[in-house]
């Protein structure tokens, strides 16, 4: 009843411009906008939560990574997504692992070519399939081995999806694409909100 009355009133009396202003100041509209904002936040937060939960389950600092270099070609190319698992006590010879060296910020995805383990610890040497030489030059402080517990922060590559991660490379490396992409998302959202 009330809404019908309102509708009738507005269609009869209010001019177009005033109706527009009234629309934006309408508490119902404000509430709707806030709800929308909240839902967008929820989207981001739930995405982040899912990623972190996957990290806890996989015991990995980064349960999914995007390949940035060509050192493992032709197995992995730039933009491929890898899914990691880090719950095994020891890794196997030939496994592809994601490790961190103290000196570099970006973790490295390479294959285990030497493996030594006993009941206490495991030492590893890695190499990229597409590299001529092993990784000793990448290790810090003159070390010649990786320590499984300390350095294999990402874990072992278990799953593979090609190319899908390329969008994150574009976002990170191409500012124009970043503006276009984020602007487009915002525009799309504003339009769907109206």
């Amino acid at each position: 009843m009330a809404s019908e009355a309102q509708k009738e009133a507005s269609s009869v009396t209010a001019p177009v411009v005033v109706r527009g202003n009234a629309g934006y100041l309408n508490p119902k509209r404000i509430r709707k906008s806030l709800t929308q904002l909240l839902s967008v936040c929820m989207m981001f937060v739930s995405g982040y939560m899912m990623y972190q939960s996957a990290g806890v389950i996989a015991n990995s600092a980064s349960p999914a990574v995007v390949v940035l270099s060509g050192s493992m070609e032709p197995a992995f190319q730039r933009g491929d997504i890898l899914f990691l698992w880090n719950n095994e006590r020891n890794v196997n010879i030939g496994d592809v692992v994601v490790y961190d060296t103290g000196s570099r910020t970006i973790p490295i995805v390479h294959r285990v070519v030497h493996e030594h383990h006993n009941a206490n610890k495991q030492l590893l040497l890695t190499k990229g399939d597409n590299n001529e030489r092993n990784d000793i030059g990448l290790y810090e402080n003159g070390r010649i081995y990786l320590d499984r517990q300390r350095d294999i922060t990402g874990g072992v590559v278990k799953g593979y999806v090609p190319k899908l991660g390329y969008i994150t490379i574009l976002l990170a490396e191409n500012p124009k694409f970043k503006i276009l992409f984020l602007g487009g998302m915002l525009l799309l959202h504003l339009m769907s909100g109206d």
């Binding site: 010879i93 030939g94 070519v113 030497h114 493996e115 030594h116 006993n118 009941a119 206490n120």
Partner: peptide, 24 residues
């Protein structure tokens, strides 16, 4: 990816534990 490995056991000199080793 096909790889030939050699595998062998050794005794760790420091801890006395058995080391298992694989090399490509």
């Amino acid at each position: 990816y096909a790889y030939v490995t050699i595998d062998y056991d050794t005794m760790s000199t420091s801890s006395g534990l058995i080391n298992q080793n694989s090399l490509v």
